[in-house]
Design a protein around this nucleic acid. Structure first.
Lengths: 226, 226
DNA sequence: TTTGCCGATTTTGCATGCAAATCCGCCATC
DNA sequence: GATGGCGGATTTGCATGCAAAATCGGCAAA
């Protein structure tokens, strides 16, 4: 999202960080497909850098699970089996549900009002069918809930794990009617939060995320047929 | 646990990995205290290596949150405020609770039997008051539950997050009577699992972890007075 | 006495060089 | 024709060198 900037204005950050972000984005968006070999020299040439910052970037990506390093045998983009993707979705679903429950009990009136405002604004995005804008809103919505748990460590973990599903989330959103349904599910979650029923908010959030996973599964199956 | 080996037999792994593991262990056990500066050259000398593998190790540690890198200003061991530690404990408690619930519904009879065996064996450790042995058992017990969720991604996340609390967990265990109580809590969890009541297993696991957090808080307060 | 500036020192960040391990193709052998 | 071993090419892993940035000390000015 801030990539256009990274390449132009932000020339002052650490080179290894910029390379890491660029690669992370390419993997998340699928431009670099799973199993692809990442040659150090080749990447160094591409980014106009030496192998050192590239190596550092690759190590960091390995730590976040986006790539696999096999000692002395090079680095490849992590291969995601459908089972693993589903495992990840389930994990995110459970963590989001947990956040929704905690947030319901702990959020301040100000935070609640902010969340309502966000949710209300999303209606026009659905009507316009703007996937990109809705995806951005969606992220803000969920992150607002993370922060409303008033547990910054949990919020960080949630964001980190969620970011690893970026690519799949976006794919899933483009399923037919998914935008509409997503917002309806948000609506139900908001209602539970408004009533102060954390358990219900939790269940609804879990269902919301698992619905997204199911939509993704359908999307994958459909892709296979094509 | 395999550290003694790492230093002697396992000279074939990647140097940067060995350095990373060594540093991670020293941070987790508190031998390297929070806020301590990690000078690259100094560490390189200590490990008999050059700065390159040390740098890679530090970057990886940064990715897992154990150290903080401030661009061009060096690396320091991540500073943990009491609030942050409590946030981490709460997060672990919630994740463990989640794992206990899923595991209850999904574990195979073989896994259940293995867990029972583990739990039974811990009785003698409590009687002997062997903190180290109990800590090792405790880890095995909790990891058995993670794996019984049959969600390998969730298990990995749980292990990763849990590992970041190693130091504090051990400190907490040495509180008076904590060993006894810990095992009694495990007992209650086992019972809920045996009855197939995932919700109860979840609640009891959460309580178990929060009790550990409370014990730790008392430990910290006591340390402050001294 | 305090504040701000300037230079020396230290440390980081990156480039490059080199040795070891792995991969790949070829040839000999079965 | 298939299999196994061998040598070159490629690639990784680590060491080292160098430039830029930050830190620290002292000194001058307010």
């Amino acid at each position: 999202m801030t990539d256009g900037l990274d390449d132009t204005i932000e020339d002052r950050g650490l080179l290894s960080d910029r390379i890491r972000n660029a690669l992370a984005d390419e993997i998340a968006t699928g431009r670099l497909e799973a199993g692809a070999a990442l040659d150090e020299q080749q990447l160094a040439d591409r980014f106009g850098a030496s192998r050192t910052p590239v190596r550092e970037a690759l190590r960091q990506l390995a730590a976040s699970g986006l790539v696999e390093v096999r000692a002395r045998r090079g680095v490849v983009v992590a291969r995601m089996t459908p089972e693993r993707i589903m495992d990840m979705f389930e994990t995110v679903a459970e963590i989001e549900a947990m956040c929704a429950r905690l947030a319901t009990y702990r959020m301040t009136p100000l935070e609640r009002s902010h969340l309502i405002e966000l949710h209300d604004a999303s209606e026009t995005l659905v009507k316009k069918g703007d996937f990109d804008a809705y995806d951005t809103f969606n992220r803000a919505f969920h992150e607002a809930i993370y922060h409303a748990t008033h547990n910054s460590f949990l919020a960080e973990q949630a964001i980190a794990i969620r970011s690893r599903l970026t690519a799949f989330r976006r794919a899933q959103l483009q399923q037919e009617q998914r935008l509409d349904r997503s917002r309806a599910e948000h609506e139900a979650i908001m209602q539970a939060i408004a009533e102060g029923d954390g358990e219900m908010a939790s269940r609804r959030m879990r269902a919301h995320m698992l619905n997204a996973a199911t939509a993704l599964r359908r999307f994958i199956e459909a892709s296979k047929l094509a």
